[in-house]
């Protein structure tokens, strides 16, 4: 009972503190308020789990998750390297890179546009739970099969966005390039690629989350004894839910950081776009 009371008191106190900070326009209030809110949430979670005696299998307290994060950092890091850097990132680069190149080819040829876009769509529609075991058969248990799943997942959104982006120029701007007697490549580099950038970055951003999900889920269907997906599936079996939550925490932070990095590049490269001008 004491934990519940404490949790409620801390909640009310933190609420009051935030209101106080906002009213007085304290320096750094824009950062302080969300941090206080987040800490309060964790504390209330902790208090309720303890106070109501919730089984750690259902919901471990944040302190247990924190302990797992600290005591098993080396395992988490090893999993992260395996799943993110080897599986997701290499698949992301290969998938997005090849989609970009094929988008350029499609753009030059209406024949390919009719032929390849439906194929891309077809691949995107394949269920990952069917695709992953096949990729494991083809490419083995290690990260290569995960990268292959990621390639299949990110390829289509990247392709569609890039193709659309390459069509985003105005007829007048293309005419202008024609009056300069500009070559295909000159027009591409000077006009069409820059104009396509907002679309390309949309594809890249969507692909970040898809890549991480794909790499994690693919590990459920066979992997070496490391990796975030592998860890989640085996720790669930051992009812070590604190470790599962620790992996989820890492995945969430990683996914946000990945997306944030791409968004940062986007901001720098498409500063001229109305959506980025402030």
């Amino acid at each position: 009972m004491m934990w519940i009371a404490l949790a409620l008191i801390v909640w009310a106190a933190a609420f009051a503190l935030n209101v106080f900070l906002v009213r007085n326009k304290a320096p750094g209030v824009g950062y302080l308020v969300p941090v206080i809110f987040g800490l309060t949430l964790l504390f209330v979670w902790e208090g309720f789990v303890r106070g109501f005696g919730i089984s750690p299998v259902l919901l471990p307290p944040p302190s247990a998750i924190g302990a797992a994060l600290v005591s098993k950092t080396h395992i988490l890091w090893e999993d992260l390297v395996q799943t993110f850097f080897k599986g997701a990132l290499s698949g992301y680069i290969i998938g997005c890179g090849s989609a970009f190149v094929i988008a350029l080819l499609i753009d030059r040829s209406p024949f390919l546009q009719r032929g390849l876009l439906p194929v891309g769509n077809f691949i995107a529609a394949l269920p990952i739970v069917g695709l992953a075991p096949i990729m494991v058969m083809w490419f083995g248990f290690d990260w290569q099969s995960k990268a292959a799943v990621v390639v299949a997942m990110v390829f289509f959104p990247m392709l569609v966005n890039t193709v659309q982006g390459l069509q985003a120029t105005e007829a007048m701007q293309r005419d202008l390039m024609r009056t300069y007697a500009a070559s295909y490549w000159q027009t591409l580099v000077n006009l069409r690629l820059p104009a396509a950038m907002p679309f390309i970055f949309n594809g890249l951003k969507i692909a970040t989350t898809l890549a991480l999900i794909g790499a994690i889920v693919a590990e459920f269907f066979g992997s070496p004894i490391k990796g975030m997906g592998f860890r989640i599936s085996t720790e669930v079996g051992k009812l070590a839910l604190d470790m599962v939550w620790a992996e989820i925490t890492v995945a969430a932070l990683l996914g946000s950081a990945f997306y944030g990095t791409v968004a940062l590049f986007e901001k720098r490269m498409t500063f001229w776009h109305p959506s980025q001008r402030h």
Binding site: M172, Q173, L176, M177, T179, N190, P194, T270, F271, H273
Partner: peptide, 27 residues
């Protein structure tokens, strides 16, 4: 010839100077 269209059609990712350099770079 140089052609001026109904709208300016400047490339938003280039400065004014950069826009004028487009034909010069191409040529």
């Amino acid at each position: 010839y140089g052609y001026v269209f109904q709208a300016a059609g400047l490339l938003p990712w280039r400065t004014i100077g950069g826009n004028i350099r487009v034909p010069l770079e191409i040529m």
